[in-house]
Design a protein around this nucleic acid. Structure first.
Lengths: 196, 196
DNA sequence: GCTACGGTGACACCGAGTATCACCTCCCCA
DNA sequence: TGGGGAGGTGATACTCGGTGTCACCGTAGC
């Protein structure tokens, strides 16, 4: 069998190289600015070829934002796990605690990366693209929960989208405070903004 | 004198060329797909040089989305013009009628462009970037209105962001219905999704 | 030991976007 | 009316991100 969960030596090596590349890249990006570091620089600094960098990360942005892809599915799973009697907005708020927890585990790294993303239009944009791709999954998860007469697609999409905006705005303010404010509190404040 | 409002012959010519380029481009994009039309193709089809195309529109995306820049400021102005006793959410909804009206004036063109944008990741992304740049102005407009104890920046930012999401989702569903549904109604439905 | 396969590097290539230069046209002023 | 300046255009060269291809090399498996 040894299906998808099997970790071969090759896969271990791949992950190690990938992590090394990302680390070298983050150092360079933070020091010189994302736009001033070419893929050639990065490859030279990491001791690999340009081809290899592009093979590990499809785009330059994904060197920074590669980890983001997994979060969307995690949030959708968390959303499905919320009690059915919870209203959509409360359920979304709690589902996003997954992300808050990720930030809480390594605030320094999260802060550095967040600053880099917010300071770099290309990264900011790519981050939105990734989060935008979460929306259908969140909308679907909302559609499958709670009382029988569910709202229409427009309503559920808006709620999912607004929740993601709350997350981003809370994170942006958290970064602006140099991580001194509490991210969960900021997220609560953001969510409260739409309970009119 | 003859300040910013003066329209010289040169400016008229510039606008005419710009409009011609955009028209030729839209035809090509819709026929062959945005990604399959290079700037060289476009320039040849319009009978100008590549340099000229790039000079009129800084990027290929802006050939399609050039008109979008003006909308943001219009919405912000409309928002400031709403009665002070209106709550933020209602005021935002009415401010967006400016955009609804633009769509209502030429539904066929709006529908074609919207379809193109939704079908082209690069355009969709660039559209978000432009709309995202409206947010500070909208947040500022919100901060200047209504009762004295105004909410914090997080709250106002979230409201502005959510309103833009409502607009986009309403427009997307309107396009999906081939323009048969009423955009204003869809926008109402979207806004209602967040009155919990 | 031989072979087949995955990872790598080294190209060549394309297209977007930037910068620069020469030319040309039109307008203004002498 | 002739000259000069300014703005628009085309041509060219360049950088860089991203794709595709090919040959090489190590390792795993027979």
């Amino acid at each position: 069998m040894n299906g998808a969960a099997r970790t071969t030596a090759r896969e271990v090596a791949r992950d190690a190289v990938r992590a090394m590349l990302a680390e070298v890249a983050l150092d360079l990006f933070r020091r010189d600015g994302f736009d001033n570091v070419t893929i050639n620089h990065l490859a030279a600094a990491a001791g690999v070829s340009r081809s290899t960098v592009l093979r590990y990360f499809g785009t330059k942005e994904d060197v920074v934002l590669g980890a983001l892809d997994a979060h969307g599915e995690q949030v959708a799973v968390a959303l499905r796990a919320r009690p059915p009697d919870e209203n959509d907005w409360t359920a979304l708020r709690h589902a996003l605690d997954i992300v808050v927890e990720i930030y809480r585990q390594d605030p320094a790294a999260a802060l550095a990366t967040t600053r880099l993303v917010l300071a770099t239009p290309a990264l900011h944009t790519r981050q939105w693209e990734k989060q935008h791709s979460w929306r259908p999954a969140l909308t679907q998860a909302l559609a499958e929960r709670g009382a029988s007469p569910r709202p229409g697609a427009v309503t559920l999409s808006v709620r999912a989208a607004a929740a993601l905006d709350c997350l981003n705005i809370a994170i942006a303010h958290w970064a602006k405070s140099d991580g001194t404010l509490n991210l969960a509190d900021l997220l609560d404040e953001a969510f409260a903004a739409l309970t009119l």
